[in-house]
Design a protein around this nucleic acid. Structure first.
Lengths: 185, 185
DNA sequence: CATTTATATCTCGATGTCAAGATACTCGTG
DNA sequence: CACGAGTATCTTGACATCGAGATATAAATG
């Protein structure tokens, strides 16, 4: 690995044919360096890959969940409740911070899940503004089944990396996500 | 870093207070380990972070682009054309593979960008089924301005990492994205 | 206590995305 | 050169999301 910390823009020559495949972001970055040699586009090497990979994962997940008759958004809500532990209930507000959607979206999601019998809405006994969303037994089963399927799929995707690489990757990503998750961005 | 490669599920104890902040995925993983100790949820350490970070980035980008009067989807299309180099034109199909949306979405996007005068549609001279989408001069300017803004923002986000860490992270992500980008998933 | 400020959730209209199918054209074979 | 398979793009209708504002309740302030 080339390390020249003082340089403005550093161009790392990797023997792609030896250590791995080229991806779309490599092509994207090369194109920018040709078209806009005045700019330092190094940040795209990381963050464009994050965005594109997330998009691929969305598609893969949609497929995996369809075998269990769930949409990705349904999975997100049901598993948030499942993780909370018995009695499997959270406020809509708590669900917001876990799923990163707006309140209007969450209201709509809860409505639809309630109509399907996977969750139910209860009044919060300690705050009359509040509501508690509770998983039904069927909702819990569906969440558990879909989770197993998701983990199998993700394990296949991650087989590209060694265990220590996965650990490194998780650690690096944590450093980027922590500011968003803690200082409420 | 603990390395016990033979183990089924390995639990890495990191002194969080010393080497970094906890994030939402740490809490998520801890909750699963409590609720479903029978499952190995290690894959989530990586892929849930990718998804959540992408979501945070979407929000940040929306903000950055609004200063230039652009939506994220407009930026994606315009910069794809900009990167192609003069005469800044691509087929809708080429735009699909770069932006990871469906053909219906791309048709709609091109319609709206054409109505705003940022791109124009031309018949493909070599294939009468085909169309070429070309950037207008104004579209090109808007793309260039927004790109500069985006890079500044991304640099701030990545300041959490050293240069060599950014290189490592890009490399690890490439290993995960390459299969999707090459074997057309 | 009265008033203000903050919080929790919901309502609603606009919009972007997707999936599936329709249409038009090209290419390889026989 | 006719035909079937393949390709490129567009059309359509259903649907999920967002943002802004509405409503109701709680907490803080003087």
């Amino acid at each position: 690995m080339v390390k020249i910390l003082g340089m403005k823009r550093l161009h790392i020559d990797r023997p792609l044919t030896l250590i791995g495949m080229e991806d779309e972001v490599d092509r994207l970055v090369a194109a920018w360096r040709r078209e806009r040699p005045d700019l330092d586009v190094e940040p795209l090497e990381v963050l464009s890959r994050v965005s594109r990979l997330a998009r691929h994962l969305d598609r893969a997940r949609r497929l995996a969940f369809s075998e269990h008759g769930l949409e990705p958004w349904e999975f997100d809500v049901l598993t948030s409740l499942r993780r909370a532990g018995a009695p499997y209930q959270l406020s809509p507000g708590q669900l917001l911070t876990q799923t990163l959607v707006t309140s209007g979206t969450m209201t709509n999601r809860i409505d639809r899940l309630a109509k399907k019998g996977l969750v139910e809405r209860l009044p919060d006994p300690s705050d009359r503004r509040g509501v508690l969303v509770r998983l039904t037994p069927e909702g819990r089963d569906r969440a558990d089944q879909a989770l197993a399927g998701l983990l199998a799929q993700e394990r296949a995707i991650l087989a590209q990396l060694s265990q220590s690489q996965r650990g490194d990757l998780a650690g690096l990503l944590r450093q980027l996500t922590a500011p968003f998750d803690n200082i409420p961005g």
